[in-house]
C-alpha cells in the first residue's frame, strides 16, 4: 500500500475546515481539498468496497428485483408486479411473525444492552479475577447452540425444571414456558439474552478502553459523584460505540433465527415464529424465493427505519 497524498503546504493541511472562508482563492482551495479528500477517502475504502460491492451489494440489489417476481431458484424470475405485496398484506402468518419479531426485539434489545453495558463497566475495572469472569461471560456465545437449547429446555421444564421449582415457592401455578403460547417467547428472550450478553460485552469493553483516563480525573476534580461521572463522562465518550452496538443489536434482534430454530422451531403454533424464520421457510421449504425476498424487504425496511432514526439522533447529538 503506497503512501496516500502527501500534503505539502500548511494551508492544505487544514483539511475540511476551510470551506467557511470566503474569497476566490479560498473557494479554489476548498475545491482542491474536497477533490483530494474524495480521492483519499475512496482510496481507503476501495480494498473493502470492491469486495463488498461484488459479493454483497450486488446480490442484495438483485433481491430488490426478485421481491417483485415469482422465482423457484431455477431459471429466470418471472415478474409479477405487486402480486407478492398484495399476498403479503393478507398473509396472517406473516403478520404473526412480524409482531413476534417486534415483541422479541422490544424486550430483548434494552435487556441485553443494559446487562452487557453493566457487565462491561464492571469487568473494565480492576476487579480481581476479571480475566476469568470475562471469559466466563463469553462462554455462552461459543457454547454449541444445540447444547444450550437442551440445557435450557431442561431448566424450563414445567414439572421438574429448577426454574419452576423455584417459582413454586412464590406462586402456585408457574408458567408452562415452552409449551405455552404466552410464555414461549419470554423463554426464548431469556436464552437469547443469556447467549448474547457476552458478545456485546466484548464490543462495549473495547469502547470503554478508548475513554481517556484523564476525563475521569477532571470530573473527579469537579466533584462529580460516581453516577454523574457515568452519565457525563462514560456515556458521552461511548456514544460512537453505543451507536454501533445499538444498531447491530437492533438488526441482530430483527434477524434472530438460529435460536428459535433450535429451541422451538417457531412453536407452539406460530407463537415464536419470527420474520427471519418465515423467510427461511418460504425460501427453502416452499421454494418460493420471490415471496421470501418480499418478506426480507419488510425486514430490511423495519431495520432501516430504526437505524436511520438512530443515525439521525446520533449525528444530532454528536454535533
Amino acid at each position: 500500500m503506497g503512501e496516500v497524498a502527501e500534503p505539502k503546504t500548511s494551508s492544505n493541511a487544514r483539511n475540511g475546515n476551510s470551506h467557511r472562508k470566503s474569497g476566490d482563492g479560498a473557494v479554489v482551495e476548498a475545491k482542491a481539498i474536497s477533490r483530494r479528500n474524495l480521492r483519499n477517502g475512496l482510496l481507503f475504502i476501495a480494498p473493502n468496497f470492491l469486495g463488498f460491492m461484488f459479493l454483497i451489494l450486488g446480490p442484495v440489489i438483485a433481491l430488490f428485483y426478485i421481491a417483485f417476481t415469482r422465482w423457484s431458484a431455477f431459471g429466470d424470475p418471472k415478474f409479477t408486479g405487486t402480486h407478492n405485496w398484495v399476498r403479503l398484506a393478507h398473509d396472517k402468518i406473516f403478520w404473526a411473525s412480524f409482531w413476534n419479531t417486534f415483541y422479541y426485539s422490544v424486550v430483548h434489545i434494552p435487556l441485553t444492552l443494559i446487562i452487557a453495558f453493566a457487565l462491561a463497566v464492571l469487568l473494565n475495572s480492576k476487579l480481581k479475577g476479571r480475566t476469568f469472569f470475562r471469559t466466563v461471560a463469553f462462554f455462552p456465545y461459543i457454547t454449541s447452540i444445540v447444547a444450550a437449547a437442551q440445557v435450557w429446555s431442561m431448566l424450563f421444564d414445567p414439572k421438574s425444571g429448577p426454574i419452576n421449582m423455584f417459582l413454586r415457592l412464590f406462586i402456585s401455578n408457574p408458567p408452562n414456558w415452552l409449551g405455552s403460547t404466552a410464555w414461549a417467547m419470554p423463554a426464548v428472550i431469556i436464552v437469547a439474552t443469556w447467549r448474547e450478553v457476552g458478545y456485546y460485552m466484548i464490543l462495549l469493553l473495547a469502547g470503554l478502553q478508548t475513554i481517556p483516563g484523564e476525563l475521569y480525573e477532571a470530573a473527579q476534580l469537579d466533584g462529580a459523584n460516581g453516577w454523574q461521572r457515568f452519565w457525563h463522562v462514560t456515556v458521552p465518550s461511548m456514544r460512537p460505540t453505543l451507536f454501533f452496538v445499538i444498531v447491530t443489536l437492533t438488526i441482530g434482534s430483527f434477524k434472530i433465527l438460529d435460536l428459535t430454530l433450535v429451541m422451538t422451531d417457531g412453536g407452539p403454533g406460530t407463537s415464536t415464529l419470527v420474520l427471519a424464520q418465515y423467510v427461511y421457510r418460504v425460501a427453502f421449504d416452499r421454494s418460493d424465493f420471490g415471496y421470501a425476498s418480499t418478506v426480507s424487504l419488510v425486514l430490511f425496511a423495519v431495520c432501516m427505519v430504526v437505524t436511520l432514526i438512530q443515525f439521525w439522533y446520533n449525528n444530532r447529538k454528536a454535533d
Binding site: 450486488g58 440489489i61 438483485a62 431459471g75 429466470d76
Partner: peptide, 19 residues
C-alpha cells in the same frame, strides 16, 4: 457508478447461469 454497475451485473447474473 460502481453501485450501478453492480446492480446491473447482479440482476443479469441472477437471470443467467442455471436452468
Amino acid at each position: 457508478k460502481p453501485l450501478a454497475t453492480a446492480a446491473v451485473l447482479a440482476v443479469l447474473l441472477s437471470g443467467c447461469g442455471g436452468g
